[in-house]
């Protein structure tokens, strides 16, 4: 099995205006930089993007926001992005904010064939508006439905032609769940290795969830908040 495509341009073929995408990453950590850049160049618009965050003004999904390519964001936290806040408050951008754990589980459910689940998160808040409430063990829960996407785009550290993926550090975050929930899932990796080079015991995302894979041309891996301590 060989799912390798040449590059980001090749990988995003078939992503059209008004589609729904999932994009892995937490802040700028573990985001599919190369595919985002290719989508900026391809000028695809009207996108609904499911992603925990919306990047910063000049990196990550912020690049697509700047060019008004995103119609709607489904996220849990969108601070750190002035252009986003401006577009949202002015009503240019539709935003659906959902609790982070519910977002992760909704993606996981989407990929796992579970149409909906009950969670306590958000009960009694505006997140619960119009959602079914049920009590389990005396505690209120709200019904959350699964999320899927036309394309899921994830970023991993290493991958092989079968699509098996290994992530590094906290760059794992939403990537494994989103990989499962795309009708077509694209994986971009820092290092594409030959079949057999990944230890099967260490694979995080099984290749069955991946349809296209490529090695990113370059990774900036920008740090959002550089915090250090002094040696003493």
């Amino acid at each position: 099995m060989n799912k390798v495509v040449a590059n980001a341009q090749e990988a995003i073929k078939g992503i059209e205006d008004n589609m729904t995408l999932m994009l892995g990453g937490f802040g700028l950590c573990g985001i599919p930089e190369n595919c985002i850049a290719a989508m900026v160049d391809a000028n695809i618009t009207g996108l609904t993007c499911i992603s925990n965050n919306a990047g910063v003004d000049d990196f990550g999904l912020g690049l697509l926001l700047q060019k008004r390519q995103i119609k709607k964001m489904i996220s849990s936290y969108v601070g750190e992005n002035d252009e986003f806040e401006r577009q949202m408050l002015s009503g240019e951008l539709e935003v659906d904010l959902i609790p982070q754990g519910s977002l992760a589980e909704r993606c996981r459910a989407g990929g796992a064939g579970i149409p909906a689940f009950f969670t306590p998160a958000g009960f009694g808040t505006e997140v619960a508006a119009e959602k079914e409430v049920r009590y389990f063990n005396g505690k209120p829960h709200i019904l959350e439905t699964a999320l899927t996407a036309d394309f899921a785009i994830v970023k991993a550290w290493k991958g092989d032609p079968m699509g098996n993926l290994i992530y590094k550090g906290t760059a794992r975050n939403f990537n494994p769940m989103m990989a499962m929930a795309g009708k077509i899932t694209i994986a971009e990796v820092e290092e594409l290795v030959a079949p057999g080079e990944l230890d099967p015991n260490q694979v995080h995302t099984p290749g069955i969830f991946i349809q296209r894979i490529f090695q990113g041309a370059k990774y900036e891996k920008r740090i959002e908040q550089r915090t250090v301590r002094q040696k003493n």
Partner: peptide, 14 residues
Amino acid sequence: MVKGMGGAMDLVAS
């Protein structure tokens, strides 16, 4: 100010 709830709703509910 609308930054989003992040994980706070999951944390406080559970």
